[in-house]
Design a protein around this nucleic acid. Structure first.
Length: 182
DNA sequence: TATTTGATTCTT
DNA sequence: AGAATCAAATAT
């Protein structure tokens, strides 16, 4: 069973979605080639108050997609080198998104050496995601979407921790808004 | 207009 | 521990 997650899935509380995305599949299709991997690590960035979120500094050309409708991709360049892939969540005008940090590749795609793709920069590199996908909807015709393939996780398998690389975010850096599988 | 800084990763 | 490398935020 394969079911593409629709926009309504993302129009809900971000912390719920960030956990539910674990076990879902990120799918990239260009031409006949399809790459798919199970999402194993996410981070939530929520609201104007969250000092770790780009949206906390207000609505800019870069962050406006976070203020828009849910179910859209937010792709940005960090450290001048790496792209980061996020899915926008919650209602229009409420800025929130989830960073996809790691995935686990299907056997068809890996050679044991690199079955895990750890780190947002590596996820984008492997799935050939760049700013072309920014502000585009997560759906089939975009060539990049998220699927439910029937994997059901025991909620106890979900680990929580502090978000990575946000030491500058004052008290918000201590929020346990990072979710991952062992 | 100039400087600083990152939701990172790779090399030394 | 440091480099790579640039868009956006902040300082001047």
């Amino acid at each position: 069973m394969k079911k593409i997650l629709q926009q309504i899935f993302f129009d809900r509380p971000t912390l719920i979605i960030a956990q539910e995305l674990l076990g879902k599949f990120l799918v990239r299709k260009s031409g006949k080639k399809e790459i798919a991997g199970m999402i194993t690590e996410t981070e939530a960035y929520i609201g104007l108050e969250d000092k770790a979120s780009h949206a906390s500094r207000g609505r800019t050309k870069r962050t406006e997609v976070m203020f828009g409708n849910p179910g859209y991709w937010y792709v940005y360049l960090v450290y001048g080198m790496y792209n980061c892939l996020n899915i926008v969540t919650e209602r229009e005008r409420y800025p929130a998104a989830i960073l996809i940090r790691s995935v686990c590749l299907l056997p068809f795609h890996y050679d044991r050496q690199n079955m895990a793709v750890n780190g947002p920069g590596r996820v984008c590199k492997y799935f050939q995601v760049d700013k072309r996908f920014n502000k585009r909807p997560a759906e089939l015709k975009t060539g990049l979407w998220i699927e439910d393939r029937g994997v059901r996780l025991n909620p106890k398998k979900i680990k929580k921790g502090k978000r990575v690389g946000v030491d500058y975010a004052r008290s918000w850096k201590n929020k346990h808004w990072r979710f991952y599988l062992e």
